[in-house]
């Protein structure tokens, strides 16, 4: 019975979700056509038309490539730093309270304050990636820390009783137990990295989706601005979905 319910429930839920998604798009279209948000909220169809115009599509594509590579570098850098820091805290528990606070403080660095400093020290091109890396670092540090502590205590005792070395235990137990939490963190980190990259571009990067958004807002090219925002959302959603699929596969394997 449980199985049947879950299967039906899953299909049903997906159906409802799809309906909700379509409803949302329809609501946007109607609100835009009715002019409910003034000129700043164009109909969905007007925004989609932007993608059919060749040179605009090329512009968006070029900008997207820049932003995605910044976000990607930031994601990898932040994730690597987060994992290393979490491991350090796990290996040397004395350091943990200090690293916890460091992560919180680094995350609390306002992007607007860091932006100008980074532009001076590392340059315009590298700023978006670094600004993306910081919040990713925090997210992954938190996720990895809680993930590394999530291993079943009895299994830990079993490893200890079997005389396993720290390395064996880490490889066969802790690292694997940490995977679901880590992937959950990565899922959220995709959006965060995109935000970091876009905000980073606002400080004067030469190209990128953030620049397109800012320029179009100032020049009142509203459909193009929405088109750029949709690209950002689409990329985040894709990343979120891909890692989400990976996560549920891992969770199913581990359940």
């Amino acid at each position: 019975m449980r199985y049947a319910e879950r299967n039906n429930g899953g299909v049903q839920r997906a159906l409802y979700q799809a309906c909700g998604f379509l409803l949302l798009l329809a609501a946007w279209q109607i609100a835009g056509k009715a002019g409910m948000g003034g000129k700043t909220l164009p109909a969905l169809s007007d925004v989609l038309r932007v993608y059919t115009i060749g040179w605009r599509r090329a512009l968006l594509l070029r900008a997207a490539v820049t932003t995605v590579s910044s976000a990607g570098i930031g994601l990898l850098l932040g994730a690597a730093l987060g994992c290393v820091t979490a491991l350090t805290a796990q290996l040397l528990p004395v350091l943990e309270p200090g690293l916890d606070r460091l992560a919180v403080v680094v995350n609390a660095l306002p992007a607007i304050a860091l932006g100008p400093v980074l532009i001076i020290t590392v340059g315009r091109e590298a700023t978006p990636a670094l600004l993306a890396a910081i919040p990713v670092f925090f997210l992954i540090y938190v996720a990895a820390t809680s993930g590394l502590q999530s291993a079943d205590q009895r299994l830990g005792q079993f490893f200890k009783a079997s005389g396993a070395s720290w390395w064996t235990r880490f490889l066969y137990l802790d690292a694997i137990s940490a995977l679901p939490a880590l992937l959950n963190g990565m899922k959220l980190a995709v959006t965060t990295a995109m935000i970091g990259a876009v905000v980073g571009e606002w400080f004067g990067a030469p190209t990128g989706l953030g620049i397109v958004i800012l320029n179009t807002m100032q020049n009142f090219q509203i459909p193009l601005m929405w088109a750029a925002v949709l690209v950002v959302a689409g990329i985040s959603l894709t990343g979120y979905g891909v890692i989400g699929l990976l996560q549920s596969a891992v969770e199913r394997r581990m359940a």
Binding site: A18, G20, S236
Partner: peptide, 12 residues
Amino acid sequence: LQSSALLLTATP
């Protein structure tokens, strides 16, 4: 609501 929330969660 879940689908719209998911969409907006992924939106920066």
